[in-house]
Design a protein around this nucleic acid. Structure first.
Lengths: 211, 211
DNA sequence: GCGCTGCTCTCTCTTAAGAGTGACGCCCGG
DNA sequence: CCGGGCGTCACTCTTAAGAGAGAGCAGCGC
């Protein structure tokens, strides 16, 4: 057992903004029962740091260079299926969140959360208790029941969002224009949009696409 | 005269993320020659803080609740035309940046900048020297020569980005569909886009629209 | 006043987008 | 084995979008 050995909860921070890392580090190290043992600035570093230190909690930004949050979650859980990961991101409409959570991340937080909430989330996750911020919980409920897009539809959606025409999309995906239209139609139906432009707006809001 | 009186440079931080404020505060207060005198979590607070403390430097996030960065810059410069403002934001494609800079903000930084760069930017601005990060300088040059949109065109663009049809746009702006089309056509030409959807993509990349 | 720019409106014409339907092969799970 | 989801393709038909070209009218600077 040997409950609290030296300093309690060991934390690894992964975020591409030095400012945010400093802020989190300052908050965490000010607590008597937790300590930052390493920081990472991109996805690859995050994985490396996790392997080296095996912290009690990994605090992870979703949007990072090299390898994005989802990929890091997958890899880390491969290394240690019992890893405790707290996702932290700026945007609340992000589809990636749900992917992470369903894959096994233990908690999710918005960056604009107050200090207290951040700290209690870290404590919760360190004890293997899930932590879900109320805003995210609400989003999750909203998302329930809404149809999900297939991979192919996401491919098409991405190209639609870049402003490509159906013909252009067909060429790039090596399908006929008719098929491209079929996919677009399916997308419009699922996203409950009237035009492709509205579909892009909705998809963006839901975090189905980036940029 | 009277160079370094008590602690040198007084700084007010304005950012809606507590984490970022903590990070900046930690960095700044660690320096012998600067000190954070107040923090603000939204635009209105930022203005209030500025009026109360009249700091040497105001570090300002562009994206904030209540009142956005551009409005804060305007108001603060009304209060004190010699105010030294350092803009700090996440996105590098933002049109607002150029508005702020041309309005009189003294510097601009990306949030993913390293500690050293942030600190030297604060020092530069405190001495009334402009500071422009290289990435932003590059963007500024890129933007040169490219045609700018009129206010009306921006109004239309916003609605286009929300997925509205020409007819719908016309109704909302109380103009005819023909006129809406004329505006859309002008937008397409200026943004060098073939379709409205591509125009939205380009506009988004340039930070002409949000969401 | 004159020219410039921005906003408005009106035509025509071509093409792209979207609705509506149906169908075929594939693979996977019950 | 058979239903169902998925991806593919093929039709028709209607409407929206975009190209092209003009034109009137206000405000503004010179």
């Amino acid at each position: 057992m040997a409950a609290v050995l030296k300093k309690g909860i060991s934390v690894v921070l992964a975020d591409d903004h030095p400012v945010v890392r400093d802020g989190l580090a300052a908050m965490v190290n000010q607590q008597a029962d937790m300590e930052v043992v390493a920081e990472a600035g991109d996805g690859d570093e995050a994985i490396a740091c996790y392997e080296r230190h095996h912290p009690d909690v990994l605090v992870l930004d979703l949007r990072m260079p090299k390898r994005d949050g989802v990929a890091v979650v997958q890899r880390v859980l491969e290394i240690n299926p019992k890893a405790r990961i707290l996702i932290m991101t700026t945007y609340d409409g992000d589809e990636d969140i749900f992917q992470c959570l369903s894959q096994g991340a233990k908690g999710y937080l918005l960056k604009d959360a107050p200090r207290q909430e951040i700290l209690s989330a870290i404590r919760a996750v360190s004890e293997d208790r899930p932590y879900t911020s109320t805003t995210v919980a609400a989003k999750a409920l909203q998302r329930m029941g809404k149809p999900s897009l297939t991979q192919r539809e996401l491919d098409v959606l991405q190209l639609v969002a870049e402003g490509r025409s159906n013909k252009d999309i067909a060429r790039r995906l090596s399908i006929t224009e008719g098929t491209a239209k079929t996919h677009v139609k399916a997308i419009l139906t699922k996203l409950d949009a009237i035009s492709r432009t509205e579909a892009v707006a909705v998809a963006h809001k839901r975090g189905l696409i980036h940029l």
